[in-house]
Design a protein around this nucleic acid. Structure first.
Lengths: 210, 210
DNA sequence: GTCTATAAATGGATAGAC
DNA sequence: GTCTATCCATTTATAGAC
């Protein structure tokens, strides 16, 4: 990924217990959702008293928000590693799709995605941060990659952003769809690779220079 | 939709208060999520005592499950109305995409989708029911429609199911993506129509007979 | 079936000592 | 900053009268 995304406001001062609490909160919130998670459980798993939790975080909402924001920064860093640029457009897209799918299908990414979607009504800003720091930035990069190929005359592409959105949708959809149908099941990498390859072929064929 | 989906096991005996409770549960669960919703609130909104709620439903989980199952049956009926068959393949796909997008972008569909995704870890069977009774059935219909076009020699299509999954992903992804970024905002129908049209064009172009 | 009243447990958050 | 102990509201679920 070449361009830098927009968010990541605060790294915050570190602290031993603070990190323990955030780590514990991640697990408990992922397991039980926002309302289902109790501050008692978080404190217990962090091996810290509840009062200590409240010394570091104003309330439950603040703890949840910080914990999600921290994950979004990690996600942003991970997705920033994905490189769109490649001399051959179709192969570049296919590789990118495979990497995206592997990332999306990882248990933690799936669980975070489901949790954030579920709580997005209660925390709208977090939903937006999650999307923008994640796939919106990557999508913009893909649009840039496709746009440059079009400028070189390799594609006949009137709207790179639209093409990128369709491509990302073809990559993300099948992973999320399958993960919702068979929750614990490990993803079938062979099937995902076939989808990645077909999505790339579809896009390049449809936008081939006439 | 021509084929009939698999689920819908129980219509259940009706009852005045029972319907009031289910209706109230729908609103309260949608507003606050599973854990956030209280049986008191549901009983109050249904203008019924809490004991009456427990006379009709074994516990909170059972009430939630029934309420979601009821919605899934409605969704199944709604999606069954969508007709894939059309003499011209691309136009058929485009119309279908527009209808699907309108359905997906409706406030209730978005809220249910978010809630079910969020609670799918706690209720795995419901997540599966939701998917299977909804877009998996529609996807199978689209695959059939595309397969018949291929048999008539109008498309060069080695794997209709794969094509249908990619198409549905292109239709669903943009709607969900936008709704997560701007939660209350009404969908931009013009933008959605452009996407529907482009998704249909992409598919037909990529699978055009050589 | 439906109600009122209540049980029994757990929730978020704080007081006050150290 | 960190702890123990506790407050107080709310929760799910039930008992018992009608």
């Amino acid at each position: 990924m070449t361009e830098t995304a927009v968010m990541t406001p605060a790294p915050l001062r570190p602290s031993k217990k603070r990190e323990q609490i955030l780590q514990s909160a991640r697990g408990v919130f992922l397991d039980h959702g926002y309302e289902g998670a109790s501050m008692d459980a978080i404190a217990a798993e962090a091996q810290v008293s509840k009062a200590t939790v409240y010394a570091h975080f104003a309330d439950k909402q603040a703890l949840f928000a910080e914990m999600v924001a921290e994950y979004c920064r990690e996600q942003q860093a991970a997705l920033a590693e994905i490189e769109a640029e490649h001399p051959r457009v179709q192969e570049g897209l296919e590789r990118l799709a495979r990497v995206m799918m592997r990332y999306l299908a990882a248990p933690n990414a799936l669980r975070f995605g489901r949790m954030i979607v579920g709580e997005s009504a209660r925390f709208p800003e977090l939903g937006r941060t999650f999307v923008d720091s994640g796939f919106l930035a990557l999508q913009a990069d893909i649009a840039g990659f496709l746009g440059r190929a079009a400028e070189r005359g390799e594609l006949d592409l009137p709207d790179p952003a639209l093409a990128a959105e369709l491509f990302v949708s073809m990559v993300r959809g099948p992973v999320q769809f399958r993960s919702l149908r068979a929750l614990g099941a490990p993803p079938d990498d062979t099937a995902l690779d076939r989808i990645a390859s077909e999505a790339a072929r579809l896009l390049v064929t449809a936008y081939a220079r006439k």
